[in-house]
């Protein structure tokens, strides 16, 4: 089994954003926090405004991970996107259900699939590799660690964005790691589930 390294971690909640544990200062505006963060990062990607809450969180966390990476938009197949979630797309499910009273909304219906967040990240960065979503009761470091290792074990991957994406309508969080098979200067080895426990605890 090839060793894995975590180059960066990013966490975006509905109130704050951090990269490697350092908070990104975002000046409060009348916009919701995620929109303010989008503007603070100077992203020009209007698709963002069509996304549901789960996808916005995951998208912004992936933007923080790729921040400053000049090669990020080069198409590649050797990068996977692996997300774990408890509540899945239930917030959008409820909103779609409500839309059925008048006219069922096709754009909402598409977001009633929890894997759309992985698609948004893949589309933005031209990632042709594996995209996978797993639903679990809690943030379970052992299962997440095992699944990440399993994903790398069976294909010629060089990197992955992997982590927890959760949104229930009021609160939410995307905690994503940039995982690589090559060690970089500031990266840390991903040796056990313990890393996942500590990384999330330290946020």
């Amino acid at each position: 089994m090839r060793p894995l390294y975590v180059r960066r971690t990013a966490c975006v909640t509905t109130r704050a954003a951090r990269v490697n544990g350092e908070e990104i200062p975002v000046v409060a505006t009348s916009d919701p926090f995620l929109t303010a963060l989008y503007r603070r990062l100077g992203i020009d990607y209007p698709r963002f405004f069509k996304m549901d809450g789960l996808s916005k969180l995951g998208f912004l966390a992936s933007e923080l991970l790729f921040w400053g990476d000049a090669s990020r938009f080069l198409p590649r197949e050797d990068c996977a996107v692996i997300c774990f979630s408890r509540t899945s797309s239930l917030d959008t499910d409820r909103r779609y259900q409500a839309s059925m009273r008048d006219y069922p909304s096709p754009s909402l219906f598409v977001y009633t699939l929890p894997n759309i967040v992985t698609a948004e990240i893949a589309i933005r960065n031209k990632l042709y590799g594996e995209t996978s979503v797993y639903i679990c009761e809690t943030y379970n470091p052992h299962q997440i660690f095992r699944t990440i290792r399993n994903t790398f074990a069976h294909q010629p991957l060089r990197s992955a964005l992997a982590g927890w994406t959760e949104y229930d309508g009021d609160t939410g969080e995307a905690f994503l790691m940039q995982i690589e098979t090559q060690a970089a200067s500031a990266s840390e080895p991903l040796l056990s589930a313990g890393f996942l426990t500590t990384a999330k605890h330290n946020l």
Partner: peptide, 11 residues
Amino acid sequence: GAIRNDANHIS
């Protein structure tokens, strides 16, 4: 078994 994404469109 393999899984790959189009990286093109959500629907």
